[in-house]
Simulated assay, not measured.
Amino acid sequence: MLTTESSSSYNNLEQMSVQEILSSINQEDQTVPSAVQKSIPQIEALVEQIVPRMKNGGRLFYIGAGTSGRLGVVDASECPPTFGVPFDLVVGIIAGGDVAIRKAVENAEDDWSQAWIDMQAYNPTPNDTLIGIAASGRTPYVIGGLTEAGKAGLLTGCVVCNAGSSVAAAAQFPVEVVVGPEFLTGSTRMKSGTAQKLVLNMISTSVMIRLGKVKGNKMVDMQMTNEKLVNRAIHMIIEELGVSPDEAESLLEEYGSVRGAIEAVKK
């Protein structure tokens, strides 16, 4: 039996008080970061391979089904506003198409050939990277996509939550984060999903830092799409340049970005 499918360490959940349920879930969640920590060497190896390819014009793709697919879509969709990159530099693809983000599409994850078909809309090249996300490590949609991507010369990686899986075998640089049984048996949206989210945060953020999208500890290329982000940008300019709020606002209006304002003054 897969670790992710093994029986919960807790029983008679329906007899627990709300406080007991919440405390037990929290206790299980606290084991996730340590499981991720054990996988840092695998994550590092993958990131070290992604960066030079993206510097050479490559893109980063995520594929997955269900919760795993949704997590990939979330991480990809947050890269443009956070790092100011084009919307098609990091792409999340979910089995069943975008409708599956909100509503499960029956049997979509069982189609071995569909992921690579879905990738064709983006004209994949050997500079691109494909990361398969699958808690179980046995999703046919993900295995097929990684297999075909490898044949086409793409860099392939994965994020799985079982050791020795078929998805990991299909990836050149697997990341295996074994978090153990879920609080609710088999509900991989819980600890497994949390682990996958943490790993995706680490991958995309470290890649973007290495691509020069961060200065110091600031998101200097972020897109200012609302008042909160405009205020954040002004505060960053104040911290970096030691100017007044009014001066910072003027610089931001003139140069259009935190990076532009800082670089213009520091020239």
Rank of each mutant, 00 (worst) to 15 (best):
L241Q: 06
G212M: 11
S204E: 02
I133R: 05
D98F: 11
P174L: 09
I131T: 09
G144I: 04
E249Q: 15
S68Y: 03
V74L: 15
T156P: 06
A65C: 11
L251P: 00
K218F: 06
D110S: 12
D29Y: 04
A45C: 03
G97Y: 10
A121R: 15
V177C: 02
S250L: 10
G150Q: 09
T67Q: 07
K38H: 11
S204T: 13
P41Y: 05
G145H: 08
S6E: 15
Q120I: 08
M119G: 00
G144M: 08
A169D: 13
S9N: 13
G153V: 05
R259T: 01
Q114K: 15
M224W: 13
L89A: 11
G96A: 10
Q27K: 13
A149P: 01
P174S: 07
V91D: 00
A170K: 05
G260Q: 03
R138T: 10
E239S: 13
G153P: 03
V214R: 08
V36Y: 04
P126H: 06
T194W: 03
L13P: 00
P174N: 05
G84K: 01
V47F: 02
A115D: 09
P86Q: 06
Q30C: 09
M190T: 09
V230C: 12
L154R: 02
K215T: 02
E249R: 15
L130H: 08
F87I: 11
Y255T: 06
A233R: 00
L251S: 02
S206M: 11
K213T: 00
A171Q: 06
D98V: 14
I93E: 01
Y10K: 05
L22S: 09
I101T: 12
Q49E: 15
H235S: 14
N231L: 15
T156I: 10
I238F: 01
M202I: 14
L2Y: 08
R102C: 10
Q172A: 14
D75Y: 01
G58S: 07
A76F: 04
N123M: 07
G64E: 04
E253K: 15
A134D: 04
N11W: 13
Q223D: 01
G64A: 06
I133G: 03
S8C: 07
E240H: 10
S17L: 13
Q49R: 13
G216M: 06
I101H: 07
V230S: 11
D29A: 12
T4P: 04
S257G: 08
F83R: 00
E240I: 10
V105K: 05
A264R: 09
E249M: 12
E240G: 02
A170C: 08
L13D: 03
S8H: 04
V220T: 10
Y255K: 14
G150V: 04
N217V: 07
K103P: 00
M219G: 01
S187I: 07
E5S: 10
V105M: 06
D246E: 15
K191R: 10
D118M: 13
R102M: 14
K218P: 00
Q49A: 14
S113I: 11
I50Q: 04
E5A: 13
L89W: 12
P33N: 07
R59W: 11
V142C: 06
V74W: 12
K55N: 12
S23Q: 14
I40N: 01
V99A: 15
P245H: 14
P245W: 09
G137S: 04
K103H: 12
C158G: 02
S68W: 03
P86C: 09
G153I: 07
Q114I: 09
Q120D: 06
G137K: 01
V159T: 08
